[in-house]
Design a protein around this nucleic acid. Structure first.
Lengths: 205, 205
DNA sequence: CCTTAAACCGACCCGCTGGTCGGTTCCCTT
DNA sequence: AAGGGAACCGACCAGCGGGTCGGTTTAAGG
């Protein structure tokens, strides 16, 4: 096989498994040997591709987490419809657990940000930046919604965006290990109520 | 000095300092030596009073964290006024950073729950139970509010309670190390808007 | 083939940290 | 004053886990 292909494949296997295990057990609670054993690779192989555990995780953040969050929560906002249902739908999608054994990406950021914000500012910043992109795009679509007459004029778009993000992140802490579908459903319902409060009251024809 | 008093004082100093340092650096990122050096105590003293680091933290949770959360977020709900302003006020108080060098208790639970939920189920359960008490009391005051005509009949009180908690917890992740007062203010504003959405529309006299 | 370098192996190193334990000091009791 | 036990000391232990490094395998290129 092509050496270049081989390299890419190994790195990809490492990253995919790494995301899975880090997400499941946390970064600092995962040792490389566990991951390596799963993949039948050695320390030598690992340190041939990454210069440290930290470097490894940063690669995962930038290649996998960032992409996924973007695809789930930012990409869908790229529309000119009424923003509120669009936002609601994207969040609902993001909270949807994937096929069995697939990673629930919706619940990664809060865990990792909390874990790193007291340990490793560099990585925390990478993660926060991902949130920031989401936030900026939320603000932007909310502002457009205001112009288009979907959202009440008095609403503070920046405040609304961080409020939405906060409630989304906080859900993770409430949902213990049990994937409580009821809780998710309730959350979406309450978010709808909040959206009612900030939407422009249409004059009935 | 009385031996019994001495014991209580040492344990109290250990717990207070422990809460401070654990909160600042995280439980697993704090080693006992750091705490002990600060207090000019030895390993021997520590293991004379606590049987393990875990036991130590559980003591802190039950003696300090639980009390504080209860005092800040549960106690104030014990009223028959309109629930929504009462809840809002209690949350605002809880998010208020204390006097300089005092611990901002408002931001502890999310951090600790996230840290322990992947490492130590027993401690995670203790922490979640604290949240649970808050939740139960929130539900209860909301239901009473419904009966008293302050809250719209269609509102799902359980859903509303967990939504409020989620948004509260999520704030922590958004506020980085910088105590961003603006963000806190915005959050309270948006929570008000949500409360508008669930309050009973009073018929104007 | 045969060279060369990338990919990989795994034994070993070493700092860190929770926990142990034999000993010492202090204070209360009798 | 003497005995005893609680409070405390700090050197030491042991496991864990990130990182190293000399060696081996593999495959592309001449």
């Amino acid at each position: 096989m092509d050496k270049n292909l081989k390299k890419r494949e190994t790195m990809h296997r490492l990253c995919a498994k790494g995301l899975e295990v880090f997400h499941e057990k946390g970064y600092y609670n995962t040792n490389l040997d566990d991951i390596l054993k799963d993949l039948s690779l050695s320390k030598g192989a690992f340190y041939h591709h990454f210069k440290s555990k930290e470097d490894y995780f940063i690669t995962i953040v930038q290649n996998l987490i960032q992409q996924k969050v973007y695809a789930l929560l930012v990409e869908p906002l790229n529309t000119h419809e009424n923003p509120l249902p669009v936002i609601l739908d994207s969040i609902e999608q993001a909270l949807e657990p994937g096929r069995p054994n697939e990673i629930a990406y919706g619940f990664m950021l809060n865990d990792f940000i909390t874990e790193f914000s007291k340990r490793n500012q560099e990585i925390a910043t990478y993660l926060r930046d991902i949130l920031k992109v989401w936030e900026v795009n939320l603000v932007s679509i909310l502002k457009r919604g205001k112009v288009d007459g979907y959202i009440a004029r008095h609403v503070d778009c920046e405040g609304a965006a961080s409020y939405i993000i906060a409630s989304y992140l906080g859900m993770r802490t409430l949902l213990s290990e049990s994937t409580n579908r009821q809780l998710k459903y309730n959350y979406i319902q309450q978010l709808k109520l909040y959206f009612n409060a900030i939407e422009e009251r249409r004059v009935l024809a």
